[in-house]
Structure formats: C-alpha cells, structure tokens
Design a protein around this nucleic acid. Structure first.
Length: 181
DNA sequence: GAAAGGATCCGCT
DNA sequence: GCGGATCCTTTCA
C-alpha cells in the first residue's frame, strides 16, 4: 500500500491510526504515543481561515510535514493528511538516538525527552527547515503500526475553539503521554 | 502536586 | 496590537 494512501483519509482516522507508528528524523526518534487531529472546517486549525504563507504546507500533499513556531520559542510538527488537515505529533516514546536527544534536551529525565509537541521537536531537531518535506522520504522515516490497538481518546490540549471535539489520541498505558486522558 | 508567571516571536486584524 | 496546538521555574499547599 502506498504510504500516501494512509494519510489521504479522514484526519481523525489517521490521527488514531498513527498511534504506535515509528517516526524518525535523521535516524532519531521513536514510537508515536500521542496525536491530535486538525481539520479544514475546524476553528482550532491553522487552516481554518484559508491558505497563508505560514500554513501553506498544510495544503500540500498527504504525508508532508507542517512545522510552525509557537509562543515565539518552540516548534510543533504535524503530518499533513487531506488538504487543510493535519495531525499534530504530541508525544513520542524515545527509542533511537537517545544520547543525542538527551544532549538536545539539556539533561532532563528520559520520560520528558519527547513528551509534548515542543519537546518532541527539540529532541528530534525539527524546525522550520523541514517544513513541507515528506515523511515518506529521507531523512524521514515513518513506519505504520504493525498491530492495531484501541487508543485513548479525549479533547485536544491548549486550544480555546472547538475544545470539545474528541480528537486527541493516546497509546493506552504509555508512560510518555504529555497529560492524562 | 497544582497553579501561576515569564520567556519571546510572528502572523493576522 | 493581540494572543497563541508550549515549556520551565517558582511558589504555595
């Protein structure tokens, strides 16, 4: 199956199915344990008001990366699904490249290396330089989950609009979630 | 533990 | 000018 087909589906379905996938950038990363879905008709989504310079990558091809700067100092990384929709990567279980991630994250405990969207980008070295690249080609690697398990579901974190939508997903029992569900 | 505040930038109105 | 898909430290219980 073409990997683009995996992303070219309803964004909430993709966000749910991404739980347990392996995500690496330059050979560093781990297992995706927490995601959130953002849709085109969703007031909380950057794409809601249409295409602009900042969110242009959100209207690219399925599987493209959309990175943006938040609060002036952190980055958040998404994977684009259908045009105007994307899945925010909120937390990773760090598995590969631990030494580099520890160095980048300033010696925090391993549990906090990739726990939260800003921390995840910091640990993997993701910034605006990777915006609009595809996760299906080097230096990225995206491996879909081998087995499907029922994820945790809850409302999204840190938003004020459409805050009731249950579009946050998490790996049941993971010690690397950014918050409890 | 929980809550609060500061850091720091840029896109959009 | 405002405020945000955050993180870290400090302060208090």
């Amino acid at each position: 199956v073409n990997q683009a087909d995996f992303f070219n589906r309803d964004v909430a379905d993709v966000a749910r199915d991404m739980i347990g996938a392996t995500f690496l950038y330059e050979g560093i990363g781990g297992r995706i344990v927490e995601t959130e879905a953002y849709a085109p008709d969703d007031p909380a989504s950057h794409s809601f008001a249409g295409k602009t310079l900042r969110n242009a990558a959100m209207f690219g091809s399925p599987g493209d990366v959309y990175v943006y700067r938040i609060y002036g100092m952190h980055f958040c990384a998404n994977i684009v699904c259908r045009p105007g929709s994307a899945v925010l990567l909120r937390a990773l279980e760090p598995l590969v490249g631990l030494a580099i991630m520890r160095a980048r994250r300033g010696g925090v405990v391993d549990k906090l290396l990739c726990t939260g969207p800003g921390r995840l980008c910091s640990a993997l070295g993701l910034d605006l330089g990777v915006n609009a690249l595809s996760v299906s080609t080097a230096p990225f690697e995206f491996i879909r989950p081998h087995e499907h398990c029922e994820p945790l579901v809850g409302p999204r974190i840190g938003i004020t609009k459409a805050a009731d939508k249950p579009w946050r997903f998490g790996l049941k029992g993971s010690a690397f979630l950014s918050r409890r569900f």
